[in-house]
Design a protein around this nucleic acid. Sequence first.
DNA 1: TTAGGGTTAG
Length: 457
Amino acid sequence: MIRRLSTKLLNVCVSSLCKSRNLDKAEAVIIDGIRLGCLPDVVTYNTLIDAYCHLVGVDEAYVILYRMREAGVRPDVITYNSLIAGATRCCLPSRSLDLFEEMLQAGLVPDDWSYNTLMHCLFKCGYPEDAYKIYLDMLSKNVAPSLTTYNTLINGMCKTGNAMNGLRLFRNLKRLGFSAELVTYNTIINGLCKSGRIGEARRILKELGESDCVPNEITYTTVMKCCFRNGRFEQGFEIFSGMMNKGYTSDVFAYCAAISALIKMGNLEDANACVEQMLRNGIGLDKACYNTIIYLQCKEGKIDYAFQLVNEMEEAGLGSDQYTYSILIDGLCRMGYIDSANKQLHMMEMRGFLSNLVAYNCLIDGLCKLGEVDLALKLFHEMKSKDDYTYTSIVNGLCQKSRFHAASKLLLNCLKEGSSVLTSTHRAVIAGLQSAGFRRDAKRLKASLRVASLLRY
DNA sequence: TTAGGGTTAG
């Protein structure tokens, strides 16, 4: 009895230390406990494993699992659920599946939580068909799906391009014995907004208003962003003001969305005022928010201040990411500082941010705008992947230098590779060829473009 | 375990 009570006390201590992100102290307390004869139990280890998954990584958490086994404490379903959730956060689907298998091998029976997490992992990492198989497996093993199971399915469907299936499932919830909760509403509204089904999203929003659920800051920012995405700025800002009036004054997502919209509108003065208001409200800036403010400074040409903010962000322990670098590279190119932009690109690669298509595009565009189209072409040929932005910049750059035949050739290559450029760029190439006296070539290009659009290559 | 974010052309 005394031992049980003291283990309970040990667990309270470990839990509290883990919550305050003090993993070293939590481990020290466990060691002290063992020395005093108070042995950690499955709850102690589960607490530690979950904290390691959240704060360090799934590999480090797995080390605790070894120690747990060595200490003669048998892992349970909760242990594995935490580990699967950890693998999900890092988008490691094979790892999640292996852990699930390991759980079965250990003779444990996965619960709805295990299935939900595994399904979420597979959706998140781009394997919707496998996620559906897990759902069927869940049913075949007579594990009752919960509302979270359906929320996860609706979310997964929306995020993998099947918002209408998500909506069908949403409509079937009652038949399955559930009524939608706020998470369900927010999930489907976001899915419908993102897939352009604004009318459907509005209908669900109306239903949410008539339900017992109370919209929260997530609902408001979801709808607000939908308005901004569709160019309905006035409506979006009405929602933002409404949010503020309702007391949602400390939501970093809402401020970031509003600041980004103001930048897009070219209203840098109000964007700055919004930043000030956010800071006055004592909102702690996160990485995305810093990036938005850095973007604002770049737009204003305050590149030194932008770099100062990057330092501030790194000193705050947030670290910069591929977005930070792309924003800086774009800002430097706009100011004509191509060498510095190049330096940032190398730093970006050295730091392992390899998805830098946007950064390359900024450089290519910057070089073209400075008339350095040959340097831009050199970079273009070095690029492993290209998109519509790449081709549009380079084709425009060639047109500016009156190299219409090269532009025409690239334009056709672009269509063959499944990319497309703006129709204004098509027109620029055709008009260029015509004005340079190559009327037959212009006619031929026009015909090829028409065929390409019919074949949709 | 499930819901909202940031960058590039014209």
